[in-house]
């Protein structure tokens, strides 16, 4: 019996190894060839935003003929990110490109990778400056927060109550945005009031429930600001069901594809995001050039393939400003 079982186990592992042969055979790993291996980490797997980044990353990888490894924790977890980075370090990839859930948590692992000669790029959200070579900056936290807050003020004539729906109370980058949103609010819009901030656990259904309650608990609510992508359509659906289309405005950070319907119906006024595909493309492009020596610390400009020449500020490569999608332009974008 025992022997049968171990045989069965070995057989299943052999099958696994057979399945594995195809991606492995093309890699430079065993042969020591010249092809670069770039490891790209999202904050979490199964997140539409990062899948859209990956589409651009795939494009760049194909163009530059590099191997792309795409992996990350299944749920946003700094400890797991840290662990995967360290595993990649042991594995011996050439460049690591990471979107950091949490600055401190990941920086120790990234520093260790750098000390082993691995180049490190961060994108989407930064690590500590000494833990990476470059940061591919699609928008600073201040930039995102100010764009959102200014947009909110524009839609409400700079007065009235609004509420925020976030992914979780501990999500590091959203907390950063909230900090800057509140700073901007205090500084420029004294007549506006942030009445409540609710977490939605990154679930659309929960965001919908929270928005429903918020609107009735705060009858003077003018606007809901959803700063994680599933919350934008969730909040919009709640507003629509409450029959408050237009009376309670919805803005947020999210993908055009998930919000197109609500933007056309006038429930959601505007969605803020950058061109996620370009972000992925630029990240891989910069990572490859960093490893090839074509991108050096101290450079002032960077020629990023189809994106043309981009400015480098300090050690961050600037992709451009966040983009506001609204009724007029949303159909031009397919992600």
């Amino acid at each position: 019996m025992k022997r049968f079982l171990s045989l069965a186990l070995c057989a299943s592992l052999a099958i696994l190894s057979a399945c594995n042969k195809s991606p492995e055979s093309g890699s430079s790993n065993a042969s020591g060839g010249k092809k670069l291996t770039i490891a790209l980490m999202p904050k979490s797997k199964g997140n539409a935003y990062f899948i859209s980044c990956k589409a651009g990353a795939d494009e760049a990888a194909k163009e530059l003929n590099v191997d792309l490894l795409f992996d990350g924790p299944t749920d946003p977890d700094p400890a797991k990110q840290n662990e995967i980075i360290e595993n990649w370090t042991t594995l011996g990839v050439d460049v690591i490109a990471a979107a950091c859930e949490n600055k401190e948590g990941i920086s120790t692992a990234l520093k260790k990778a750098r000390s082993k000669g691995i180049k490190v790029v961060t994108y989407d959200s930064d690590a500590n400056p000494d833990a990476r070579d470059f940061f591919v900056n699609q928008a600073t936290p201040e930039g995102i927060a100010e764009t959102l807050m200014d947009e909110a003020a524009r839609l409400t004539d700079s007065e009235g109550e609004f509420a925020i729906i976030t992914a979780s109370l501990t999500a590091a980058n959203m907390n950063e945005w909230r900090k800057h949103i509140e700073a901007r609010l205090a500084e420029k819009y004294p007549k506006m009031k942030l009445v409540d901030t609710k977490p939605c656990d990154d679930l659309k259904d929960k965001a919908q429930a929270e928005a429903t309650n918020l609107m009735s608990a705060y009858p003077n609510l003018k606007l809901i600001m959803a700063i994680c992508s599933p919350a934008v359509p969730g909040a919009a659906e709640a507003v629509k069901q409450a029959g408050k289309t237009g009376a309670v405005k919805v803005i947020g950070l999210g993908l055009p594809s998930e919000n197109r319907k609500y933007v056309h119906e006038g429930v959601t006024q505007s969605v803020v995001l950058w061109k996620t595909k370009d972000l992925g493309y630029l990240t891989i492009h910069a990572a490859a050039d960093l490893a090839n020596g074509q991108l050096k610390p101290g450079a002032k400009e960077y020629n990023a393939g189809r994106l043309g020449t981009l400015k480098i500020e300090g050690d961050s490569i600037v992709l451009g400003k966040p983009f506001i999608f609204n009724k007029d332009n949303i159909d031009q974008f397919d992600f």
């Binding site: 199964g46 679930l203 659309k204 919908q208 599933p230 359509p233 998930e258 319907k261």
Partner: peptide
């Protein structure tokens, strides 16, 4: 649950 909104979130039920 699905009929309550025009989109299905594959993470629903977590």
């Amino acid at each position: 649950n699905v009929v309550q909104s025009p989109q299905v979130d594959p993470k629903s039920g977590t």
